[in-house]
Design a protein around this nucleic acid. Structure first.
Length: 826
RNA sequence: GCGAGGAUGGCGGAACUGGUAGACGCGCUAGACUUAGGAUCUAGUGUUUCGCGACGUGCGGGUUCAAGUCCCGCUCUUCGCACCA
């Protein structure tokens, strides 16, 4: 073998990378004559740790699909940018003692370098950065759009506060009572905060899930998070034991059919009417209970295991349906933030109420029965639907009908109404942190809350050195008096800027539109280009953003649609979530465990082609996989094997004939067919397995046949290189040149296969007797049933099992199998 | 508790509308070439048996000529939500 043909990945990378850069291989322009394909990765935050090979499970597959689509003739938009605002970037900067703008730039360029190392085919001229004023100018513009449409508002209330990160968090960013970033316990804090009214879009966010090709899992997660439930609001009537004042006490229930079984009521300890409804005799115990539940950590309070506790207020409420007086309790298992913060309790038909009633000796009244007959004393709550009893005029109705009739009754008698409740809350976007897009609002003593006029955007983030969060619940920006003090855009009098910044998820709610015209000055995006490119056709990233980014971006898209800015309602047509990459042994890769594998070291050791192919081959795309040092060696062997094989055997002018030629042709066509559909279906591991099979068949042919000197061989090599191009771009390009082709392999058309070549004249058919495989016989592919049967019966191995037996059934599945069902003959 | 997955050799994983289970790779075994090999090549590799064969896709039933695949009942496991009335 000549020196030129020695596989040296480093030389190939050094040779081709500059050439590809020079020819701007990945530059993307609009082309109305070509079908577009927008392939996007989740907007990454460029972490100071750099990329690990785990991240490549996201970036390599999208790169392969992008390359395939280009070769298939699509105009592909495959961009990359940085979601660099937000807590993680700022925390990292604080830790390093360097301004976040500096660390962000450094980290981004490191990411860019690493992604280029494995030759991800991004058009880097479209790179964007959410911390760039030319970018966040438009994030602020969208804030104003939401504000003008009544979808951004400021409100006071108890909200999640992370004492460690010293900022308020959105509900979506609190996991099991802990901060999503630092994992510290969160607490509630009363602050005046900015919200986006995402709840206005609840129904559309659920309904439009039908329009998109996303994993069911993610759709379900969003649906559950939104938590739509249909029920009724019922006004109980209560009277203050101290003032004698009477008022409505509304509750929300999904089971109004059980209302004749209500024997008590529970309010959240934070409920506004608790004080008015507390009898002087109960005051001490009620206050003690409230103090106690305040003290409990949110984790304790959220625990479902915990016993349901509560104390009576000493007052009563009247059930509008039957005029019964029922005692009112407070209990911390009732959530202040859901429904009305008060529940009617039906021990007979709710597990919690049942337990509570048993403990406090409260009546249990059965009103729903499975069979229409009372069950007598209940040992546990019966929570299913059933037939009503003990319910006056509603007796005998099924729960479903009863709910309808009772809501009608409520509405006629003005005692309540049908109501829909949602579990999710409005999106809280205020952050008391420095590193974010400033909220473009001015507070004026005369004019109140005044939006910054669009032509004054961006409201620049001042460049300061003291950006650590304060302890006073205020953003560090509040201390920059030069910046805070401004004039009111409306009346011109002195006014103060809003000092909170926006949640980083605001930036990522529209970034996919910026890529279509990243340098556009007139607006956030060029509307014509959006029409061409958007929405995103394929969106790939981790599943952890199911109810954060993916929900927020859908919400903003709908707002933009309503404002007439874009012609579609869903941003991401198809979504795919890659599985996690664990370290060898199935443990998480982490810096602290010192088991992180970087692309840098693997590219150095095995080359980019091997690393790319191995990432794809490791396992099923969606599932978790573990890194394997041995495995990547195997992939290196494959890459080298292909390289050596094609260097050595490049075909000739002889004509390929005979069975072996036919067979190789068949394998080639089968490989083209499978690799194409496998990549399209994200089954990258089997695509590579098929390429390995083709390689094995070729190696075999070099040993056993003369095919390597034929024109067929030339065709096989050429098509194989095209199939390899998206996966192993370097050897594909080098071998393309070595085999005498002109131009870049990456600018060729994807090969097509010949369906006829896949058909075989002869096939091997399994023969079963009573479901057991007994022989395999070779027959013409289009053999008819009678001939097949005769051939099968002629087989010695089969005969053995047919002798002395009576064939009760014969099954022939063309191209599949032959099967006899027999029983002993008499 | 609710929701969505997963369970197949020593390991990662294949298997289309039910139709030869274990593709492909790793590892392992033997051999070849080598001063050597953790390089490369060849052969083998689900269990069991000398062999014919028998048994094998988490467990227990069922449907079928035929089940990893379909149905019923479980176990374990991963993830998300979690007192939502």
């Amino acid at each position: 073998m000549c020196e030129k043909c020695e596989y040296n990945f480093k030389k190939l990378e050094e040779k081709w990378q500059p050439k590809w850069r020079e020819m701007k291989l990945y530059k993307t322009n609009e082309d109305p004559n070509k079908k577009k394909f927008y392939c996007l990765d989740f907007f990454p935050y460029p972490s100071g740790n750099g990329l690990s090979v785990g991240h490549l499970r996201n970036y390599v597959p999208t790169d392969v699909v992008s390359r395939l689509k280009r070769m298939q003739g699509y105009n592909v938009l495959h961009p990359m940018g940085w979601d660099a605002f937000g807590l993680p970037a700022e925390n990292f900067a604080i830790k390093q003692g360097v301004h976040p703008a500096v660390t962000t730039e450094k980290n981004a360029s490191n990411y860019r370098r690493q992604l280029s190392l494995v030759e991800c085919s991004y058009d880097w001229e479209r790179e964007i950065n959410s911390t760039d004023p030319d970018y966040y100018r438009w994030t602020q513009w969208f804030f104003l759009l939401l504000y003008k449409r009544g979808l951004a508002y400021k409100a006071a209330g108890a909200q999640w506060w992370c004492p460690n990160c010293r900022t308020i968090l959105a509900n979506e960013q609190v996991e099991q009572g802990r901060c999503w970033r630092c994992e510290g316990l969160v607490e509630k804090k009363d602050l005046n905060q900015w919200f986006f009214k995402i709840t206005d879009y609840a129904d559309r966010l659920i309904d439009d899930l039908k329009l998109i090709n996303w994993p069911d899992r993610i759709k379900k997660m969003q649906e559950n998070w939104i938590g739509k439930s249909k029920g009724a609001e019922v006004n109980f009537r209560a009277k203050s034991p101290t003032t004698g004042e009477e008022f409505d006490l509304p509750i929300f229930t999904t089971r109004v059919d059980t209302i004749f079984g209500v024997t008590f009521m529970t309010l959240a300890p934070e409920h506004k009417l608790v004080e008015k409804l507390t009898h002087p005799d109960n005051k001490a115990s009620v206050e003690a209970y409230i103090a106690e539940s305040r003290k409990k950590s949110e984790i304790d309070r959220l625990s479902t295991e915990k016993e349901k506790t509560g104390v009576p207020l000493g007052s009563y409420a009247i059930n509008p349906f039957n005029g019964e007086m029922i005692p009112i309790y407070i209990g911390d298992y009732v959530l202040a933030g859901y429904g009305t913060g008060a529940v009617m309790a039906v021990p007979a038909h709710d597990e919690r109420d049942f337990a509570f009633a048993k403990k406090h000796n409260i009546n249990v009244i059965e009103v729903i029965t499975p069979e229409g007959k009372p069950q007598g004393e209940l040992k546990e709550a019966y929570t299913e639907y059933g037939t009503l009893i003990n319910s006056a005029q509603f007796n005998g109705l099924r729960s479903e009908q009863a709910i309808e009739k009772m809501i009608e009754w409520l509405e006629e008698n003005k005692k309540g109404c049908g109501r829909i409740n949602y579990k999710f809350r409005d999106w809280l976007i205020s952050r008391q942190r420095y590193w974010g897009a400033p909220i473009p609002i001015v507070h004026c003593d005369c004019c109140g809350t005044v939006p910054v006029p669009e032509d004054q955007l961006p409201v620049l983030l001042p460049n300061i050195s003291e950006f650590k969060p304060g302890t006073d619940g205020k953003s560090p920006l509040a201390a920059i008096t030069d910046w805070v003090n401004t004039t009111c855009p409306k009346c011109g009098k002195p006014a103060k800027r809003e000092t909170d910044t926006m949640d980083g998820f605001a930036c990522s709610s529209w970034y996919f539109l910026r890529f279509v015209s990243p340098k556009y000055k007139e607006f956030a995006f060029d509307k014509e280009k959006v029409k061409y490119w958007a929405p995103v056709d394929l969106y790939v990233g981790g599943a952890e953003h199911a109810v954060m980014h993916l929900l927020y971006a859908r919400f903003w898209t709908k707002v933009m649609y309503d404002a007439g800015l874009i012609p579609f309602v869903e941003p991401f047509q198809q979504l795919r979530n890659q599985g996690m990459m664990l370290a060898a042994g199935g443990v998480k890769m982490s810096k602290s465990k010192n088991n992180v594998i970087t692309p840098d070291e693997m590219v150095e050791k095995y080359g980019a082609d091997t690393l790319r192919a191995f990432i794809l081959f490791l396992g099923t795309f969606e599932l978790e996989v573990s890194w394997s040092d041995e495995g990547i060696k195997g992939m290196y062997r494959f890459v080298k094997r292909v390289y050596d094989l094609i260097c050595e055997f490049q075909g000739g002018d002889e004509k390929a004939e005979g069975k072996e030629a036919q067979n190789l042709k068949k394998i080639l066509n089968y490989t083209i067919k499978q690799v194409t559909t496998d990549i399209e279906n994200f089954s990258f591991n089997t695509a590579i397995a098929r390429l390995m099979e083709l390689t094995n068949a070729m190696v075999d042919a070099t040993k056993k046949t003369n095919l390597a000197k034929t024109t067929l061989w030339k065709e096989v090599v050429e098509k194989m290189l095209l199939l390899l191009a998206p996966i192993t771009p370097f050897i594909a390009e080098e071998l393309w040149e070595v085999t005498g082709h002109k131009g870049s392999v990456h600018q060729q058309s994807w090969p097509t296969y010949d369906e006829k070549a896949l058909e075989e004249s002869n096939i091997t058919l399994p023969v079963q007797v009573n479901g057991k495989l007994r022989d395999q016989i070779e027959l013409p592919a289009n053999v008819d049933e009678a001939t097949a049967r005769k051939a099968a019966e002629a087989s010695e191995k089969v005969k053995k099992y047919l002798d002395g037996m009576q064939v009760v059934k014969f099954i022939f599945v063309p191209k599949r199998m032959i099967s006899f069902v027999v029983k002993p003959a008499k």
